[in-house]
Design a protein around this nucleic acid. Structure first.
Length: 809
RNA sequence: GCCCAGGUGGUGGAAUUGGUAUACACGCCAGUCUUAGGAACUGGUAGAGUAAUCUGUGGAGGUUCGAGUCCUCUCCUGGGCACCA
């Protein structure tokens, strides 16, 4: 018998599949039910595919092959999220143009994916940096622009001095740039924003309609951070002006003993003339401005200053209250001003203690001398509202003082301008008067200029392009200028799933029929780290496009599952700096693609972390070796030599295995599907080798087993399939059906418990009645030891499982 | 501090609705084969005990005939967030 040499058969079949276009589907075939399974596409970095990709793409490839054999028309595309900083940083270092680097990296990724046996149709790939793709990114931007979903404003933003660019709030990690680690400083920069906050409520509510992990939904909801409350106005004494505060606890209004403004609040400056200690206030404002986010975070103690000379009036009881500024109040949240109720808010309590401000209890239920009482209760010290519940008082007090119930959100609009080269150009030009105009559709794609060097100088790279300058003036006239910012790469990935059904369409982002047929995505697999940004942005794009009328659905991903991180054998994150990064290529070379794929999914549940332990992969490799040798033996071995016939047992094994494997793959429980395949092989082994199986049963077993193993280990099964006399690819076969008649056992093991503890196991007919088993059990010697001379209180019978005899102790 | 996830053999992990704890695999031990090493194959492997048996799913309670699973409290680990009014 020949030896199992993965490198030989894997290359062979990859070539065959490629020549036979195994991955081609007819996207307009309506005879089969569609299924759209999507991977989060990779950024094509210079270091190549990493193990995390390997796991999630293996999972999707398995699922794709499974669904296809079940008779679905399966779209399982792949592409490249190819705009982005690394290519540009590489260009700065080496002078190699990002377009060239990207092209080279993509080819490498494709080779790597093929070497793992992933059956993608790369003729149908999507590359976000291709003009044919970003034409539609720009077109969609245009639609958003026309529909008021895009706006420009100058805003204090996170600025990375190394990347020379604005970083979205969501992309700042520990006050540092997520990509390069440079400390972020605050800088006033003009930029473009998407109005994602227009969709806050829908983004929360519609999570109820999709099949996503509960914790992912919870995290998105927390990220959007809706809080219900009220807007209340505090009149400034002696002035027309009032301070509007947002509070979630309008019921505690009678307990408000001071008001706090964010130091950046514009009223502070407007009240300048009336503030008698302006020098102190000004100093505090400057202090705040100089504080980095990190400083403000680490501040152990609350700080603030009282605005001397001004007071506000509590609308509930007419009391005069002092006004403070303090940096624990943020300008960007709510109204940038709060009413402080120290008795019932922890931060206010802390501040009040420090500055010796009055603490007035207005909700009964706890002692407010030691700490704030933030729970519910009945109102006290609140005039006619005394005795009312918190919930009711929220409404009524708000109404009485002329406030307004409202909600506020943590989510902020999405700032997507980048002062970078390697990104999608924003299709905007400015008139000589400085007015922004959308570039008409006929000029799209609005191409990224090529005559640009990449050395950061503090100005946008695009502003250095002579070609761009000329292009704008030729089209729009003298004095017109281009928008020099490019888009955040999250824009590119916010709609790519809409392109796959029709990636070559030059007339629209996706043809209407294809769109209707294929969308939304049925199953999306990718890392949980994309919960807040990518998944939220993609949902926003979908909802915005739906609102405009470009698509007829408003959630992009019906079902979402995450793959866990791939860690090293010690459970540590793989990183360049630790030098523990494992390259899929070397693993494929060492163990074969089939073993890498199978181990990847066997080692842990998909959503859990996988510790990549080379010592353990040998178990899977041994399994495949066993498959290799066993199936050749089974096929070439003889028929029945002994009188005994074990066909039925073999049928039972394979049918149970088909049932379990089918069910497990359907639910993405690949680890238990693989262990079931291992168990089946182990239990079949002695049976078949004893030559107690008929040729028919043997051939049927070989066929079915190879098919259900094939999604995991496509190469070895395809080779064995051919070796066992089949001409047509195994992947063109139908997924085997379960024959229910072989799932019924004649005998089952019945557990006998006494007081819940297992005392005996009996083999009984599977349709044994309660009375029969009772009798047998009570007479059993081992059971008698524990029941003899004791009163039997009751007997619990679970059909097919156990009988529990409860005795008086 | 808040939010999310998770604690099961030496290790990765199994365990329908509460119903046989530790499937499958790694490692380890013994044996077979081999000049030897490796590989392969066979058997064993939660702990304690000669044994009957007892103890065991981070810990403490509880519900139940019966709890890894449900409830309460608590400890620990990983991840995320940052004073959100």
């Amino acid at each position: 018998m020949n030896k199992y040499i993965p490198s030989e058969i894997e290359k062979k079949w990859q070539k065959v599949w490629e020549e036979n276009n195994s991955f081609k589907i007819d996207k307009d075939d309506d005879s089969k039910e569609k299924y759209y399974i999507l991977d989060m596409f990779p950024y094509p970095s210079g270091t190549g595919l990493h193990m995390g990709h390997t796991e999630s793409y293996t999972a999707s490839d398995v699922f794709y092959r499974f669904k296809k054999m079940q008779g679905y028309n399966v779209l399982h595309p792949q592409g490249f999220d190819s705009f982005g900083l690394p290519a540009e940083n590489y260009a700065i270092k080496t002078g190699v143009k990002p377009a060239e680097t990207t092209q080279k990296n993509i080819l490498n990724y494709i080779e790597q994916m093929k070497s793992l046996g992933f059956d993608y149709d790369f003729d149908e790939k999507v590359i976000t940096s291709d003009p044919g793709y970003y034409k539609w990114t720009q077109w969609i931007f245009g639609k958003f622009f026309e529909n008021g979903l895009v706006y420009k404003k100058t805003q204090k933003t996170n600025w990375c001095s190394s990347c020379q660019t604005v970083i979205a709030n969501e992309q700042v990690v520990d006050a540092k740039c997520e990509r390069c680690g440079t400390e972020i400083v605050q800088k006033e920069v003009p930029g473009w924003f998407f109005k994602i906050t227009d969709f806050s409520d829908e983004l929360i509510a519609d999570l109820a309609t999709v099949d996503w992990p509960e914790y992912t939904k919870k995290n998105q909801i927390n990220w959007i951070g809706k809080s219900q409350g009220a807007l209340l106005k505090f009149q400034i004494k002696g002035l027309e002006n009032s301070i509007e505060v947002f509070t979630t606890r309008p019921d505690t209004l009678f307990g408000a003993t001071y008001v706090v403004l964010a130091p950046e609040h514009k009223l502070v400056n407007e009240l300048k003339d009336r503030i008698s200690n302006w020098d102190v206030i000004e100093k505090y404002i400057i202090q705040t401005q100089n504080k980095t986010e990190l400083d403000r975070m680490e501040a152990k103690e609350k700080t603030g200053e009282k605005l001397e000379g001004v007071v506000v009036v509590n609308p509930a009881n007419g009391q005069e209250l002092p006004i403070f500024i303090a940096d624990y109040v943020l300008a960007g949240y709510g109204t940038g001003a709060i009413m402080a109720v120290p008795a019932h808010d922890e931060r206010d309590f802390e501040f009040a203690k420090k500055y010796d401000l009055p603490i007035v209890e207005v909700i009964s239920g706890g002692d407010v001398d030691e700490k704030a009482y933030i729970e519910n209760g009945e109102l006290v010290n609140s005039g006619k509202f005394d005795g009312m519940s918190v919930e009711k008082a929220k409404q009524e007090i708000t109404q009485v003082v002329g406030g307004e119930m409202t909600a506020t959100y943590r989510l902020r609009d999405w700032s997507f301008s980048r002062q970078r080269y390697w990104g999608c150009p924003i299709p905007i030009v400015y008139s000589p008067a400085g007015e922004a105009h959308l570039i008409p559709e006929k000029h799209l794609p609005w191409k990224l200029p090529e005559d640009v060097d990449f050395v950061p100088t503090g100005v946008a790279p695009l502003s250095k392009s002579e070609e761009l300058k000329k292009r704008v003036e030729d089209i729009f006239g003298q004095g017109w200028t281009a928008e020099y910012d490019t888009m955040d790469t999250f824009v590119d990935s916010s709609w790519y799933f809409l392109r796959y059904p029709d990636p070559h369409n030059e007339e629209s982002f996706c043809g209407k029929d294809r769109l209707k047929k294929w969308m939304p995505v049925d199953l999306y697999i990718g890392g949980a780290e994309h919960t807040y940004m990518h998944l939220l942005y993609a949902r926003f794009f979908t909802k915005a496009m739906h609102k405009i009328g470009l698509i007829d659905f408003d959630e992009p991903f019906l079902k979402l599952r995450h793959q866990g991180m791939v860690l090293d054998k010690e459970g540590k994150k793989m990183s360049k700096s630790k030098g523990n990064v494992i390259n899929p290529d070397s693993m494929v070379e060492k163990f074969g693609a089939d073993a890498v794929r199978t181990y990847m999914l066997f080692a842990a549940p998909l959503e859990d972390e996988v510790m990549w332990n080379e010592d353990n992969i040998v178990g899977v490799r041994r399994f495949l070796d066993k498959v290799w040798s066993s199936f050749q033996m089974y096929y070439f071995g003889g028929g029945i030599l002994e009188a005994e016939n074990n066909d039925k047992q073999l049928h039972i094994i394979i049918n149970k295995t088909i049932k379990k494997v089918t069910n497990d793959i359907e639910n993405l429980r690949f680890n238990t599907a693989i262990s079931e395949l291992m168990t089946a092989l182990n239990s079949v082994k002695s049976l078949v080798l004893k030559n107690t199986i008929s040729d028919d049963a043997r051939m049927s077993f070989i066929k079915k087993y190879l098919i259900i193993l094939s999604p995991f280990a496509p190469h070895i099964t395809e080779e064995l399939w051919e070796m066992t006399g089949h001409k047509e690819s195994i992947f063109l076969q139908s997924w085997p059906e379960v024959d229910e008649k072989y799932l019924q056992d004649d005998e089952i093991e019945m557990v006998v418990q006494v007081n819940g503890r297992v005392r005996e196991r009996l083999m009984v007919a599977c349709d044994v009645t309660e009375d029969e088993i009772k009798e047998t059990a009570l007479e059993n010697a081992k059971v008698k030891v524990f029941t003899e001379g004791k009163e039997i209180k009751k007997i619990i019978f679970v059909p097919g499982k156990l009988i529990n005899i409860v005795v008086q102790l």
